[in-house]
Computed example of a mutant assay.
Amino acid sequence: MGAITTIVHFSMPAQNVERFFAFWQETIRPVVERQPGLLDGVFHRYVDADGPFQFINVARWESAELLAEALRSTAEEIRGNGVEMLDVFSELGVTVSQNNYLEAVRYRAEDVRDL
C-alpha cells in the first residue's frame, strides 16, 4: 500500500488553546517523533480564531500498520508516564477527528523564470 498521510483536526474551547498546545508540544510530540515509521509531519495552528479547528496535524507514515502501532504506542507511553491522554483531552474539551489518506497526486509550484 505504501506511505499514508493522516490528517487530524483538533477543536476545543478558545480558553484551552494554549494549554492544549503546550500539552501537545511537551507530552505528545516527543513521543510521536520517536515512533518507527514516521516520515514527517506539520502541526498547523489556526489563523482565524472563529474557524472550526484550532489545530490540524498532517503527518506522513511509511504504512497504515506503522501508523496504527504508533498511535497505540504513543498512548501507552504517555499513560506509562502517569498521564491519560484522553483524560487531558476531556478536561480541555478537545474533540478529535482523524482521517487517513493515500497520496493521489503530488504537485508543487512551477519555477518561474525570465525568458
Rank of each mutant, 00 (worst) to 15 (best):
G2F: 05
S97H: 09
W24C: 03
S90V: 00
N81L: 09
N81V: 01
R60F: 04
R106S: 14
R79S: 13
V105Q: 10
P36Q: 09
E33H: 05
Q98G: 03
V88L: 03
R72K: 11
D50Y: 06
T6M: 10
V58H: 05
Y107I: 01
Y46H: 14
R29F: 13
E110L: 12
T95F: 01
A104I: 03
R60D: 11
F43M: 15
A70M: 05
Y107K: 11
F53R: 05
F53K: 05
Q25V: 11
G80H: 04
T6E: 15
L38F: 14
I7S: 06
W24Y: 15
F21A: 13
V47K: 04
M85T: 15
F55I: 02
N99M: 08
F55Q: 02
P30Q: 10
R60A: 08
R108W: 11
N81C: 06
V96A: 03
D114M: 14
A109Q: 13
V31F: 03
F23Y: 15
W61G: 00
A109L: 14
V88F: 08
T6A: 13
P36R: 10
E77S: 09
I78Y: 02
W61L: 04
T27S: 09
A75N: 11
F55N: 05
R34S: 12
A70N: 12
E26V: 06
Q54L: 00
D48E: 10
I28F: 13
V17C: 05
W24G: 00
H44Q: 11
F53L: 02
S11H: 03
V42W: 10
L102V: 09
A75F: 07
E110D: 09
N16I: 06
S73M: 10
E77D: 07
A49M: 07
V32T: 12
W61S: 01
